[in-house]
Design a protein around this nucleic acid. Structure first.
Lengths: 78, 78
DNA sequence: TAAGATTTGTTCGTATGTATA
DNA sequence: ATATACATACGAACAAATCTT
């Protein structure tokens, strides 16, 4: 999934992948996405890289994190 | 704060600034100073530059870093 | 009530690559 | 060539919130 001889950086590629999963409905509103630890393992990247991407998606309003619970796709319009 | 057409290098200027903050008591003993990430943002410099300066202040005995916790001003005499 | 597991959040430590002067 | 400075990316430890047993 991640290209290790990249035109784009790792975090940019991961951003694109997760954004598509949200916008395509693969990750559904009101549902938690996989945990940071799970995403690290799924994509073989470091925690910091995952957190950087999730931070940007939060800035975009596409995700909302709740400490101790998980990271959610907000319901539409909220 | 940082002069971008410098007589001194960026890291030297940052060293002077942080040293003054420690010696003036602006950063107090037993208290953590702002994180590396915070200092990056406060001064608009790169992580490597902050780490270079903190490394020198540690060599001087003016700071002590504890992984996962923070970077502290040691109590006097310790 | 207490203890453990899970999850997000934060921190320092380290390495590599690129660009510039 | 060397030093400066930036960005990226890795790892590890610590902390706090939440939930379950």
């Amino acid at each position: 999934m991640i290209d290790w001889e990249p035109d784009e950086t790792v975090w940019q590629q991961l951003y694109d992948i997760l954004r598509k999963r949200i916008e395509s409905g693969h990750y559904k509103p009101r549902m938690p996405i996989p945990s940071i630890t799970h995403l690290e393992q799924e994509f073989g990247v470091a925690r910091g890289t995952v957190r950087k991407v999730l931070g940007k998606l939060k800035d975009d309003g596409l995700l909302r994190a709740i400490p101790g619970k998980g990271t959610f796709v907000p319901p539409r319009g909220e």
